[in-house]
């Protein structure tokens, strides 16, 4: 299996890109979707992406804070997404080297497992709090999220892929 190394060296990531991508993911999560069970958790997807790509910049703290925001915004039990996202960030950081070795679709398989795990954590928390079993449809969101992984990685790497041409020619 050939490693999917980029053909050119990526620019260092800018903090602005990360913040903007998280804000966009939050907005997408808060959109009034008609059928919420079929919608992937965009924040989880973007969080996985940055944890895999930039494990030193984005980690558990970011995941926990975002999860708390999601909990409050959705009016659910405070802390369930925080728990799920910090676990997700931990796993994504632990497997970041391994995941980056594969091609985009094989990466998507890994991401599917991570997203299903995060969903499972929230389901367990809800069951512990007295909810009924949600049924198999909870797996649809993570599956669609994983299918979006190649698109997300392509889009989020665009800012770093820009060729360095703005540099002015130096006059020696």
């Amino acid at each position: 299996m050939t490693p999917d190394r980029p053909h050119h060296i990526l620019l260092p990531v800018r903090l602005k890109t990360i913040v903007a991508s998280f804000a966009l993911a939050l907005v997408l999560d808060f959109l009034p979707w008609p059928n919420l069970r079929l919608v992937p958790e965009f924040v989880a997807l973007v969080l996985t992406f940055w944890c895999v790509r930039q494990p030193r910049l984005v980690g558990l703290g970011v995941g926990w804070t975002l999860g708390l925001l999601i909990d409050a915004g959705n009016g659910v039990l405070l802390g369930q997404h925080a728990l799920a996202y910090s676990l997700l960030a931990f796993l994504a950081i632990s497997f970041s080297r391994r995941i980056l070795w594969f091609g985009l679709w094989q990466q998507a398989l890994h991401v599917a497992a991570l997203l299903v795990f995060a969903q499972g954590v929230t389901v367990l928390v809800r069951l512990a709090a007295g909810a009924e079993l949600p049924g198999w449809s909870v797996l649809v969101g993570p599956a669609i999220g994983a299918a979006l992984w190649p698109l997300v990685s392509y889009l989020l790497l665009i800012p770093q892929r820009r060729p360095v041409e703005r540099e002015e020619p130096r006059v020696m």
């Binding site: 703290g61 926990w64 708390l68 039990l77 802390g79 925080a82 728990l83 931990f90 950081i93 709090a129």
Partner: peptide, 25 residues
């Protein structure tokens, strides 16, 4: 230097979340 080990951080954030869950529920 990378700060505390990931497992330590995980334990910290997970217990924080669990505490919040219990407090809320």
């Amino acid at each position: 230097r990378r700060g505390p080990a990931p497992v330590v951080r995980l334990a910290f954030f997970a217990s924080l979340s669990l505490a919040l869950l219990v407090l809320d529920a």
